[in-house]
Nucleic acid binder design. Structure first.
Length: 327
DNA sequence: AATCGGATCAACCGCAATACA
DNA sequence: CTGTATTGCGGTTGATCCGAT
């Protein structure tokens, strides 16, 4: 297999394209098409390599390029497809008319990936992160922060807000740990002490000890639960994991390369990655992220205390850094 | 006003797949 | 069948922007 010559050779220009270069490229392609990218630069009067021209055309100058922000629907599709296809950007792009693989890749790396990480999900597997020690270290740091702030007078508004933020963060980490552990175990409602079964006994005991110390931290201010009621210890009831996160089948590794052929934008048939999260039917039959937070079961059948998964999935992901309706 | 640091995104690099002689 | 040319793809880089200090 040969390698295409590097652009550096023969003093070919690199870097950002000028409007004049763009114009030359557009005019040439519109007139002659792009039969051979290698020959094109010379014919078009461009001091660029063919590779650079092709990239410029496909990622920027093509007439059917859709520019601007990604819509929530597009974001949803990217998330769903990525959970099935992984970093197959061109495959993902082929399902989003007008979007390039480069654009989607950038959007993923700068926005969606960060959001998933922030929520405690592994951006590659779309499952809750199971790196317990990392989470544990942050948990301990937060616990210390909580203790520090908790001791300060509450008439200090800033301190109060910080304490609430720390408390919410503690809650989030506990939920993530519990969720991750429950995912690794069986289905249903779990208490945290069952989490790391079979994984690491040391981690388990460490976690339990940290749990104990965390739960003993006095709450600076009562938090409201999901029904709007205040709780003396808001952490405890929230450790119950809603069934919507576990009752649906999780995508097996063998489904990683699901063939998407046959699905098209707006396809709401079972299995389609384009299925709306608000659909009354299970939105993503083989997509783990949809199962985790998309809410395949209704609020009434979940028995989760009123959480309504079908509607909170996009909100939770895009708006609320502290697990949305859970906190 | 100057500086800094994070976010964004266009563009490049290198590898792999495919086409073709 | 083999070697070369070309194209496609995913990872990474670096210039630029912008808000915070």
């Amino acid at each position: 297999m040969g390698r295409s010559p590097c652009c550096d050779e023969n003093g070919l220009k690199k870097g950002p394209w000028t409007p004049e270069e763009d114009q030359k490229l557009v005019q040439y392609v519109q007139k002659h098409g792009h039969g051979s990218w290698r020959a094109l630069p010379k014919l078009a009067g461009l001091n660029r390599c063919g590779k650079s021209c092709r990239l410029r055309w496909t990622n920027y100058l093509r007439p059917d390029i859709k520019r601007g922000r990604f819509s929530p629907e597009e974001e949803q599709i990217i998330l769903n497809l990525h959970s099935v296809l992984g970093n197959k950007w061109s495959a993902i792009a082929s399902h989003l008319p007008g979007r390039t693989d480069n654009e989607i890749k950038n959007f993923w790396n700068t926005h969606l990936k960060k959001r998933l990480i922030q929520m405690g999900f592994d951006p590659m597997t779309h499952r809750p992160r199971t790196d317990f020690f990392d989470a544990l270290q942050q948990l301990i740091a937060l616990a210390k922060l909580g203790e520090l702030i908790g001791g300060r007078p509450l008439d200090d508004n800033a301190a109060r807000q910080q304490a609430e933020a720390a408390q919410a963060a503690q809650l989030q980490y506990l939920q993530q740990l519990a969720a991750a552990a429950a995912m690794a175990g069986s289905s249903g409602t779990h208490h945290l002490s069952t989490t790391i079964t079979g994984a690491d006994l040391e981690a388990n005991s460490l976690l339990d000890s940290q749990m104990s110390s965390l739960l003993s931290i006095p709450s600076p201010t009562p938090l409201q639960d999901i029904n709007g009621q205040t709780s003396d210890n808001p952490l405890l009831p929230e450790l119950e994991i809603p069934c919507s996160m576990f009752d649906q089948p999780i995508r097996s590794e063998t489904n990683q390369s699901s063939n998407l052929t046959g699905f098209s934008l707006g396809d709401n048939s079972p299995g389609s990655p384009f299925m709306s999260p608000n659909s009354p039917l299970p939105p993503l039959t083989d997509v783990s992220i949809g199962n985790l937070v998309g809410g395949a079961c209704s609020a009434s059948s979940c028995g989760n205390g009123g959480i309504n998964p079908p509607s909170f999935w996009p909100d939770m992901l895009f708006d609320d850094p502290f697990m949305g309706d859970f906190a």
